[in-house]
Design a protein around this nucleic acid. Structure first.
Lengths: 249, 249
DNA sequence: GCTTTCTCTCTTGTATGCAAGAGTGCCACA
DNA sequence: TGTGGCACTCTTGCATACAAGAGAGAAAGC
């Protein structure tokens, strides 16, 4: 399954690289992903880059502004609400569907929570962001259901983009506490409680967002002129357009 | 948003056409989707067909066998189990998260159930297949969460493929009854019960499958030789490879 | 008659080329 | 000095050309 003569490997690696860059908060929302830049970066032609972009687009991670370029999505406030709602639905449903926590899974989660503690102690914010999202993916992995894992991975990626846009400060300790509580309930075999805690946890994080903030800095003006709310491709937003891969070109 | 000079329209239409073909059971699992055939069919070049295929691949609806072609997925027994599990998780989570059933939504579901009855009376099996899947998508639409709708649409598409492979006979009446019960619970405002009924309903349907049947006809032999379970791209499976669009070529 | 090998066709994989649109900056002109 | 317009550049959109591999079928050898 994993030999592949660089072809298959390279093919998905563009996609995976970008997703993992987002998951670890190294790529900001709105980052421009030029086909040419990526092509030279990965040593392939634009064709394959485009394929990766198309895939990422259907996963809701990237969008294209015609003849302008590909950009990492900048979820609107409504998008943010929808993403959190979707996560509550899926994660609560997932936890409720669980019946036992296998020893193996217990260990994996325990190890993960330790990593969270370590990252907190080290003050490694980037790693912390990654771990905070990954906790939920780990839970999904326990179920052994690859479909759910994929869904949650993509939702988590979007969550991280959202937090980069709307989260003024990062309450890592609070999140960690939430994760611990969920883990405890799971260990006690009380998955109904774990589900409830999970919903609570997501609510907390969502509440910590300032959804009136950044992504459409013209919203006030727009409102006072009573223009349409916001078309998907609008708002160039000069800053941070070239946050990554800015050295070449 | 919807003017688009045939470009955007055609772009997504390949994708949508295939999905809708599956949702209404007009396209069978394992159907070969030749790039050239689709290209001439839609009057575009292979490039755009490929883009659509890539998208469908990330949605889990199509897969590619290198240098052989694109095929509508033939979910394995394990895939089938995972899809039903995922649906239980998402649908139960969805129903549990609901608080009220708006009058508008009540009407929509009521109308839908009537359509189911009509199709049953008319014995229109294809339409029935479509409606049976669509019921669940309709419920998702009530939530107003586009993410969940998309997830369920894709899962439903796979469900239909599964049923074409493993469902010996179609218990439409039973499914319809299940839908009615769910609707009743929703009308009564008892969404916890609706969620439970939904899980039950999906269990029933899953139980009605014969997961020892078709898709890997060599499984017995394979087991007796203790070979690996089944690699994604194996098993050519001659029959019904060209079920649709077989006239030209 | 059976098996093996070779070739030929058909399919996707990938790169490249050209077209068209968006955006920017300069220049002319008032 | 401010403003309108033009040209230029840079980007994606899309088609096409060519390469490479899979498979089928025929021919040759046993």
């Amino acid at each position: 399954m994993q030999e592949c003569h660089t072809s298959e490997t390279t093919q998905k690696s563009i996609e995976a690289t970008i997703v993992s860059g987002i998951l670890s908060a190294r790529i900001r929302p709105g980052t421009r992903l030029g086909e040419n830049q990526l092509a030279t970066l990965f040593g392939v032609s634009r064709t394959r880059v485009r394929e990766a972009m198309m895939r990422l687009e259907t996963r809701g991670i990237v969008h294209v502004s015609p003849r302008r370029g590909w950009f990492v999505v900048e979820p609107s406030a409504e998008d943010a609400i929808a993403v959190y709602e979707a996560r509550r639905i899926v994660e609560a449903g997932l936890l409720r569907s669980m019946r036992v926590l296998a020893e193996e899974g217990r260990k994996a989660l325990d190890a993960h929570l330790n990593e969270e503690r370590n990252a907190m102690a080290a003050g490694d914010r980037q790693r912390l962001t990654y771990l905070m999202g990954d906790f939920h993916i780990r839970i999904a992995e326990l179920s052994g259901n690859a479909i759910i894992v994929d869904i949650l991975r993509d939702l988590t990626a979007r969550t991280i983009l959202i937090s980069m846009l709307y989260q003024s400060e990062f309450h890592a300790a609070q999140s960690h506490e939430g994760h611990c509580r969920i883990f405890e309930a799971m260990q006690a075999g009380d998955f109904v409680k774990a589900a409830a805690l999970s919903v609570e946890h997501l609510d907390e994080v969502e509440m910590g967002l300032d959804l009136t903030a950044r992504p459409d800095p013209l919203s006030d003006l727009r409102n006072s002129l009573s223009l349409p709310p916001k078309t998907a491709s609008a708002v160039p937003q000069q800053p941070d357009l070239k946050a990554t891969t800015s050295k070449e070109q």
